[in-house]
Computed example of a mutant assay.
Amino acid sequence: MIDVRRLQLLQALDHHHTVAATAEALNVTPSAVSQQLSVLAKEAGVPLVERKGRRFLLTGAARVLLQRAHVIFAEMERATADLAEYADGDRGVIRVGSFSTGISDLIAPALARLRSSHPGWSFEVVQAEPEESTEMVRSGRLDVALTMSTADLPAHGDPDFRTDPVMVELFDAILPYQHPLAAHTSLDLAADLADQDWIMSAPGTAWHSCVTAACNQAGFQPRVVHTVDDFSAVFALVQAGLGVALMPRLAWTGLNTPQIVVRGVRETARRHIVSLCRAGASPEPLLAAVREAASKVPVPSVGPFAIAG
C-alpha cells in the first residue's frame, strides 16, 4: 500500500529537483525527505529516483506513478469537501493566504460576512505574496490563496490546481493635490504621464512588472525617480509633490488625505485577481464572499478636485 503523503513528497521532488529544495518547500529536514523516498520505493517495489550530481531524476516507474497522482489528490480533496458538508459545515480551520491589500480589502470583509452566514467555519489568514502562494498551496500550507496573474501562477490546465476569477484590478494615477493634472477627470497613460517623475516599487516585484509592461505597451519607459515597496511611503512621497504613481486600486481604497488625488487612467495597467486551491477542493463559500467584497471596491472620483478618501 502506497502512502499518499509520500506520493505528495515525490511530486514535490519532481517540481524542485533537489532534496534540499524539496525539504525547504515542505518545511521538513532533508534527511526526512530521503528517508520517506526510500520507504516509498519499497512500497512501490521499484526504484523511483536516480541521482545525477546534486539533482534527483525520476525514473520511468516514478513517472507512471505520478500520472495517477493528480487523480488521487483531486479525489482526496473532493472526499474532504464531502465530509465537511456532512459535518454540517464545520470544517475546522481553513488556511487562507493573500497579498497585503487583498487581506485588507477583500479577505477581511469576506470573513466578517462569513462569521454570520457560516458560523461553523473557521479561517486562519496568512500573508502570502504571489511568488510564494502557489508552492504554499501545493505543499498544503495553504488551503486557498488569493493571488494574481503573474508568472508564478500555475499554467492554465495544470491538473494539480483549480483557479477561479475574482476581479480585474485596474491601476489608477496617484497625484499631488496641486498637480496640474489633478484638474482632469481622467488621464491618458502616454499623453499625460509619460513625462512625469514616477514613484514605483523595485524591479522584480509584481507592481513594477505590471506597470512597466503597460507603459511599454503605450510606447514609453517611465522615468522612475523614487523606488519604494511600501504603499504608505508612496503616499508620503506623492503628498510631498515628489512624483506620481500608478497604483493598484486596492492599494488606495480607504486613503484619507487631502493632499492626494486619485484619477482613472485610459489604457492603464491591470491585473487579474484569482482564487487558487488544489484540484478537487472547493473555495466556497469564501470565493462568493470575496467576490462580493470585490464588487464594492470604490472607483476614482470624477470631479475636478475630488479627493480620495
Rank of each mutant, 00 (worst) to 15 (best):
D143N: 14
Q221S: 14
A240E: 12
M200L: 13
F231K: 01
D230G: 05
M247L: 10
G204Q: 05
P176Q: 13
S209P: 00
P203Y: 09
T253K: 09
G243E: 07
S149M: 14
G219M: 09
M167Q: 07
A183Q: 09
T227R: 13
P222L: 10
A182R: 04
T147R: 06
V244A: 07
P154K: 06
P165L: 10
T253Q: 08
A182M: 02
L146F: 11
D192R: 00
C210Y: 02
M136A: 11
M247N: 01
V238K: 05
C210V: 15
D160L: 08
F171E: 01
I174H: 01
S186P: 03
P176N: 12
A194W: 01
L181S: 07
D164I: 11
V166I: 15
W252E: 12
R223E: 06
V238D: 00
D195A: 10
H179G: 02
L189Q: 05
A233C: 03
L187M: 12
A240C: 05
F171V: 03
A214D: 01
T212A: 07
L242K: 14
A151L: 06
T147K: 08
V211P: 00
M247H: 03
R162T: 10
H179M: 03
S149Q: 15
H179D: 08
H179P: 07
D172S: 11
D197Q: 14
R249N: 13
V168H: 15
A173E: 03
A155I: 06
G140D: 04
P165D: 08
P165H: 07
G243P: 04
L153H: 03
H179T: 06
A183G: 08
S186G: 12
L255K: 02
Q217D: 13
Q239W: 00
V137K: 00
V168P: 03
G241F: 02
S149H: 14
I199C: 02
S139N: 11
A206V: 05
C215T: 04
P180N: 08
L175V: 04
E169Y: 03
R249E: 09
P222T: 04
R141G: 04
A213I: 04
A202T: 12
P154D: 07
G157V: 11
L146T: 09
T150W: 06
D158A: 12
L181Y: 10
A218W: 07
L246A: 14
A213L: 12
Q217T: 13
A145C: 11
V238A: 02
C210P: 00
G243S: 11
A206S: 13
D229W: 00
S186T: 13
R141Y: 08
V225K: 12
A145T: 02
P180M: 12
Q178H: 08
H208S: 08
C215A: 15
L246C: 09
A194C: 07
S209H: 03
F235Y: 08
S201P: 00
Q217G: 06
C215D: 05
V234H: 01
Q196M: 05
F171T: 04
S209Y: 02
M200N: 10
T212Q: 05
V244Y: 00
P154M: 09
W207N: 05
A182T: 11
G254I: 10
D192L: 05
